[in-house]
Structure formats: structure tokens, C-alpha cells
């Protein structure tokens, strides 16, 4: 009875119904939203807020707003900018090398090799290892006396403690660690390139190199842009690997920005300033990434 009576009214009042539907949707979303708000948005806002205070570790400290003072200190902090420079060198070189190596590996794994399935699984192995385990493993590889690297090369280099070799040595581990994700994504992209294009190019007499340059790369472009930007963000935010491998040493030569911020907060107890560092790093990363994506988009048009 009510049903039939309500029906015509309901059709007329569709906007109202959809509004109440919106409320229902919101209620249904709530279980998913609450954790996001509590665990992600909340701490983020809190961190940003903290960046404008002089919060310090201690039982009897008082925190007050200091406005932009932390940012002023940051601009004058030579140690931080040195660490930031190291972070950029690290993130750019790891991302580029990772991309080149992964592209090669993906092309190889895309061929009709024997035991291809097995090889693909092998290529994924580093992905299954936590960064701390990778760090410990490579520390053994690099060990000056007992390490396999010195044994194989017949050298006597203390890889992780030498001022000039430490950063490249850590970069190598970073490349190794990040290769699986990049390889898998590129491999998926390669498998989406239509075979007809290669056949057509083959008919036109294009060689392997020509086909790679004029078909594979342009077809992969969206995938490449996506994975390199993601890699860049992951790499500049890398912490655990370097913390385990070198703890920022020797003499700060591998002190990535995240490690620097961690030390400010949990070693020296300057929570407010550490939060400022976090905010500044985020801003710079967003700017770099925005510029890169904008250029890629423009070129793609």
C-alpha cells in the first residue's frame, strides 16, 4: 500500500532521493574512510602543523608556535642541503639505472626463451625480500675481509666506509632492490604492444633497433612515465636500506634526506624541525615530479 502510494511521489522527488542515497553512500564509505582519516590524513595534518612549532623531545618541554622560523633555519642549514644533494644524486641515479637495467631485463624476459617462466620468477626474488634483509645481505657482500665482492675482484676495498665509493656502492644495492617492480611493470607494458605493429614494420624492412626505437618505446611511453615517477618517489623516500647499510656514513656521505630527518627527530630530539624537513622534502619532490610529468604530457600531445 505504502509502496504504490510512494512510487509516483518518489519519481517526482528523484533529486531528494539521490541526496539521501548520497548520505547512505557516505555511511557505507565510513568504515573505509575512518582508517584513512585516522591513520593517514590525521598524522599528515599533524605533521604539517608540527612543522610550525618548536616541539622538542623531553618531559618538561613546552611547545609553542614559531611560524616560519623552522623554514628559515632550514634554508640556512648547509648540512641539510648537502644531504638533499646526496638524496637527489641517489634518487636520480637509482631511478635511471633501475629503468635501463629493468628495460633490458624486461625485453629479455619478453623473448621466447627456454625456461622463461622460471627466469621470470627468479627476476622477482629481490621483491620478496624486506629492505632490512637486503641491507644485511649486501653488508656481507661488501664486507672488506669476508665479503664475496673483494674475494671475487681480488681487491681490498672497504666499500661502505670509503668516502668516494660508499654512495655508488649503496646506489648499486638500491638499483638491485628496485628492479623487480620496474621489470614487471615494463614487461606487462611490452606484452600490450600489438604484434601487428612489428609485423608491419618488418614488412617495411625495419631492423631490430629501428623497431625498438619507433614502436616499442613510443608504445611503452605511458608505462615508462608512470613507473619512473613512482620509482623516483620511492627512491627519494628510501630509508631502511641506507639505515641498515651505512647509517648515513662514512662522514655523512650516504645520509639521505629521510635519514637526516629521522636523526633530527629521534636522535637529537628536535621534532618540530624534523617535521619541517619532511614538509620541505614533500614540496620539493612534488615540484620535481610535477615538472617531469608536465613535460612528458606536453611531449605526448
Amino acid at each position: 500500500m505504502t509502496l504504490t502510494a510512494a512510487r509516483p511521489a518518489g519519481t517526482r522527488r528523484r533529486p531528494a532521493r539521490s541526496r539521501s542515497g548520497g548520505r547512505e553512500t557516505f555511511l557505507l564509505l565510513l568504515p573505509a574512510l575512518v582508517p584513512v582519516l585516522v591513520l593517514s590524513v590525521g598524522p599528515l595534518l599533524y605533521g604539517i602543523l608540527l612543522a610550525f612549532t618548536d616541539a622538542r623531545s623531553g618531559r618538561n618541554t613546552e611547545t609553542s608556535f614559531v611560524g616560519l622560523a623552522n623554514f628559515g633555519d632550514l634554508l640556512a642549514d648547509g648540512d641539510f642541503w648537502e644531504s638533499f644533494r646526496i638524496g637527489m644524486v641517489w634518487a636520480v641515479s637509482v631511478t635511471v639505472l633501475q629503468f635501463l637495467a629493468s628495460l633490458g631485463l624486461a625485453l629479455l624476459l619478453n623473448q621466447d626463451l627456454r625456461l622463461r617462466g622460471f627466469a621470470r620468477v627468479l627476476a622477482l626474488v629481490p621483491w620478496a625480500m624486506p629492505p632490512v634483509v637486503i641491507g644485511l645481505m649486501w653488508r656481507l657482500v661488501y664486507h672488506p675481509d669476508a665479503g664475496i665482492l673483494n674475494a671475487v675482484l681480488g681487491t681490498d676495498v672497504d666499500w661502505l666506509n670509503d668516502f668516494s665509493v660508499a654512495l655508488p656502492a649503496v646506489i648499486l644495492v638500491g638499483v638491485w632492490m628496485g628492479m623487480p617492480q620496474t621489470t614487471v611493470v615494463l614487461l606487462a607494458g611490452l606484452q600490450n604492444v600489438p604484434k601487428e605493429l612489428y609485423e608491419a614494420a618488418g614488412v617495411d624492412g625495419a631492423g631490430v633497433w629501428r623497431r625498438f626505437w619507433n614502436i616499442t618505446l613510443p608504445q611503452l611511453r605511458p608505462v615508462i612515465v608512470a613507473i619512473t615517477s613512482l620509482d623516483f618517489v620511492w627512491n627519494i623516500n628510501q630509508f631502511s636500506l641506507v639505515y641498515v647499510l651505512t647509517q648515513g656514513g662514512p662522514g655523512g656521505r650516504t645520509r639521505l634526506p629521510m635519514l637526516f630527518a629521522y636523526e633530527e627527530a629521534f636522535r637529537y630530539g628536535f621534532f618540530g624541525y624534523a617535521a619541517t624537513l619532511g614538509v620541505a622534502i614533500t614540496i620539493v619532490v612534488l615540484a620535481v615530479l610535477g615538472l617531469y610529468l608536465w613535460r612528458q604530457m606536453r611531449e605526448a600531445d
Binding site: Y46, L50, A55, T61, S64, F271
Partner: peptide
């Protein structure tokens, strides 16, 4: 303000585990 640092510390402990 004191509560802030406490909250941060809780977050930190969760992170540091």
C-alpha cells in the same frame, strides 16, 4: 602542547615498533 609530543611519540612507537 605537551599532548602533541605524546601523540607524536605514540605514532613514532608504532613506526619504530
Amino acid at each position: 602542547m605537551r599532548r602533541w609530543s605524546a601523540a607524536l611519540a605514540v605514532a613514532a612507537v608504532v613506526l619504530a615498533a
